[in-house]
Amino acid sequence: MKIKHLLFTILSSGLLVACSNNTTNIDDDFIQSDSIIAPTSIEISKESMDDLIDNVSSPIEIASLLIDEKVPFSKDYIASTDHIDDLVTDFDCALNLGILGTDLGYLNLYEKTGSVMSTVAAINELASRLKVGQFFDFSLLKRLATSSNNLDSLIFTSISSFNNMDDYLRSNNRTNVSALIVSGVWLESTFLATQVYQNKTNKKIAERIGEQKLILNNLVLIMQNYKGDPRFEDLLSDFDELKKLFDKVKIVTVESDPISKVENGMLVIVQTSKSDVIITDEQIKEIGDLVSSLRRKYINKNNA
């Protein structure tokens, strides 16, 4: 009798543990990482794709640079959200989600919380169409945007929503959607920087534009992985045209060892390697014009 009792306890516990494992939210789990990368023969491996997508810098960094260089805010740089209803395919929704993600970062950092809501609403709509709407808590974002004391929380919530959505897409074999979103982010960030430069030349902004070459090279590799799809081929063709312009930009690096020190109990590493970008005003104008044209093409689907 006691043995039956013990068996019953063990079996029931095992059942409960198994059930609790099955109900864990997939987006709440940490993916088990490993240092062994799975080999592939033809296509880019998932790990390499993850690497390439990770290499697109956050749109926050461009916006932060503009603020540091005292560039005034302009709503002319923000994509209109009037066209959202025209976007019906996953391809168009994902690309525009990336574009609006950059705009959200720009609006947040410039503290234009009053203008944030239409962008947030459009992001929410596009995310829902892509079946990743669960990562954007619209009511929370609205609450944070309408309160002037919650800017840090708004920025954090916006960024982590995009990061969590991106993790989910890549974990669920939807890396192609993730790739399109980062392409949209990059396109809009480059548009922002080139438009600002054309209104006010600035060495740091010029360098940042030139550095986009590093990201574009990766985006081209990513798009090549989806060459079988005509829409991706079209985007790849556009990126190849841009790449021809960026190939004229030179990035020179000088390597040197970093210096590390402890300041106020914190470990501080000061890098001494350098990178310099050689880019001309004419090159920036050519890049800006083409980026602007591509942006119009992918935003205004019915007017392309």
């Binding site: 940490f30 993916i31 088990q32 990482s33 490993d34 240092s35 993850d50 690497d51 390439l52 990770d54 290499n55 697109v56 810098s57 960094e61 932060s64 640079l65 993790d167 740091k204 360098e207 940042r208 550095e211 590093l214 990201i215 350098k274 990178s275």
Partner: peptide, 26 residues
Amino acid sequence: RAKLRAAETDANLPVARFSVLLSKGN
């Protein structure tokens, strides 16, 4: 995010790797 098993040997420590673009001046 990284969740790793214990190393089986000293020579083969598990490592999670991520890429990131960092910009000069930041």
